[in-house]
Design a protein around this nucleic acid. Sequence first.
DNA 1: TAAATTCGCTTGCAAATTGCAAGTACAAAT
DNA 2: ATTTGTACTTGCAATTTGCAAGCGAATTTA
Lengths: 137, 137
Amino acid sequence: MAENKKRSDCPVSQSLDIWGDKWSLLIVRDLMFAGQCTYGDFQKSDEKIASNILASRLQMLEESGIIKKEPHPESKSKVLYKLTAKGIDLLPLMIEINLWADKYCSITSERKALIQEVKKDKEGYIKMFSKKLKSLV
Amino acid sequence: MAENKKRSDCPVSQSLDIWGDKWSLLIVRDLMFAGQCTYGDFQKSDEKIASNILASRLQMLEESGIIKKEPHPESKSKVLYKLTAKGIDLLPLMIEINLWADKYCSITSERKALIQEVKKDKEGYIKMFSKKLKSLV
DNA sequence: TAAATTCGCTTGCAAATTGCAAGTACAAAT
DNA sequence: ATTTGTACTTGCAATTTGCAAGCGAATTTA
């Protein structure tokens, strides 16, 4: 459950120790697109993550300071998950993943449009999007 | 052994299906730093990947066209692994991982120096490094 | 106000993956 | 001719994943 051991001092290795599994970055993706999500929102995503895996990943991401939990303003039974500044700083990485996939994977036209926007002015797009996300924190 | 099933149409998800495990990007990292590696070179890395995992990851990365195998020019018993263009295109992603880790993980001073170079002129650095890697293909 | 539903998890268990240690086949060096 | 180096493979135990169901509290519905 806890992936708390550092394999080496390499920055890549240390990063992968934190979010280098099949699910964590999908959670981050959902939060970047939606700004905030409930537990149920994550479960609605196309990849259909198992409930126990979702719970353990959310806990890990929270422990490593990438996301945070907040009470839902409208309901005591709901929880809101949000990205922290540390999580928002994964945006450039997320953009590069999309750009790579745009070149080498088959992408939905919906997402393709967004990637086109990024290509026009990558730095500008990241700044704008990052600012938007930070306003929600 | 084979992670050949697509979880969804999302570019992030599809990318993670290919290289989204704890080891693949470390193999790519080694190749980016060294230009080319033998099986034994990978095993010498700090993270001490198990031999069977290394073999299976190398196979997967080759099947997905990110790396390629070549006969070693000096020995029939050795094999050279190299990045393909598709693998080299992971460089911007790799750079962003390093930049994120530079901000949030504890990094060795050796790698810190390299990251400083990147920060001065990211685009320029990527172009230069990418060109260098492509000259080895 | 009682019953049903939603919500965020947890639990049990089978299946898949990982990690370790040792082994194998071929090439190269001694 | 024997030992060493190289790229893997194999067997097996331990961990992780994935599925299905369950659970307690909050909320909605009848």
